[in-house]
Computed example of a mutant assay.
Amino acid sequence: MEPSPVLYTQTDLIRYFLRLGTVGFGGPPALVSAMHRDLVIERQWISEEDYREGIALAQLAPGPLAAQLAIYLGYVHHGVVGATLAGLAFVLPSFLMVLGVSWTYVRFNGLPWMQAIFYGIGAAVIGIIAIGTYKLTLKTVSTDALGWILFTVSALATAIVEQELVWLVFLSGGIYWFIKTKGHIRTEAGNSYAPFLLQVLSLPFDSMLWKLAFFFMKAGAFVFGSGLAIVPFLYGGVVKEYGWLSEQEFLDAVAVAMITPGPVVITVAFIGYLVAGFSGACIAALATFLPCYLFTVLPAPYFKRWGKHPSVKAIVDGITIAAVGAIAGAVVVLARRQLVDLPAILIALSTLWLLYRYKKLSELYLIGGAAILGLMLRYIT
């Protein structure tokens, strides 16, 4: 069968991810849903199968989910160069924004208005990610009864324990493979997976930048799940273990990640800036994203080569369903934390209704309106 023609260039790819990195609010659930809507459904640059493989690989490998998916989708038709450009284009806008916020934060000794803006934006984001997750769920699970069971279990587990259970994602892939293929294994694919290991060399230099590099490389290499999953790891390190930030500074760092577009994990740049200035921000961001880049690009050829085999495809489908369930559960967790009063609930519900009612409505307008509402409510109350 002839491969389908590539409908876009590397330049188109860079433009898209620059835009998504600039206006893509809502963290992993919203960004993952946006890539599916834009690249699979509307533009049809990426096939549904390639998208599912990307989601599965992003779930299996440690690191931020949305960034890894962007890297993989860049790899699909344009190889390592496409993966590199897509990853850079996706991360760079939010990195530059966080640098600007970091400078302002340090210059004016904190951002008292940040909490007001975050209040409004955070509530609107819940509506944005809820509608995106709803659409992604319908497309991924469809009418598959087994898929709905696995989705529901994953969503409930994530909502209850408030973290993504990696073992449940693996188990879902195994169950789906066993039931759909009756345990049949394609033996010709058995010897095609080359093991790889990312080794972190010991750092002999006792300087803050090397300490930052080592710590954030661990964060990028050993934390599974979405960008939100890295927050507890960062808290334990930068606040509890090393004392680099105070409790309030860390909360402000998380707020910065949520009020800026792009991957949530970009909060590492804010933390690095507070600890060691511009150099610290660059080191923290590079050390965090480098492992996830390698963990995506290195196994990508094997996913591309064997992802279409029935056994591998069943495992990928099961993992994807569980991943979408975990995203849905994460929406519940975020809603519980963000929607703390009636105005916040009304903002979220209004956002949800507007996006459902008006399909072409730009999320950027809703984010801007919610930010203004947050400031107004702060000063009124």
Rank of each mutant, 00 (worst) to 15 (best):
D12S: 09
I14H: 04
R15W: 12
G24N: 11
F25A: 05
P29N: 06
V32T: 12
A34F: 03
E42N: 12
Q44K: 13
P64K: 00
L65N: 00
I71T: 12
I71F: 01
V80T: 15
G82I: 03
A86Y: 08
L92W: 08
L96I: 14
W103R: 11
Q115R: 13
Q115P: 00
Y119G: 01
V125Y: 05
V125K: 05
K135C: 06
K139H: 13
I160G: 01
E162A: 04
E162P: 00
L165N: 10
L168A: 06
L168F: 05
I175R: 03
Y176M: 07
F178V: 07
A194C: 09
L201E: 13
S202G: 11
L212N: 12
A213T: 08
A213F: 15
F214T: 14
G225W: 00
F233M: 01
E241Y: 04
L245K: 08
Q248S: 11
V254K: 03
M258P: 01
V268A: 12
L274K: 14
F278L: 14
A281Y: 09
L286M: 10
G307Q: 00
P310Y: 05
A314N: 02
I321Q: 01
A322E: 01
G325W: 02
A328T: 08
G329D: 04
A330Q: 02
V331L: 07
V333P: 01
Q338E: 14
A344Y: 05
W353T: 15
Y358N: 06
G374M: 08
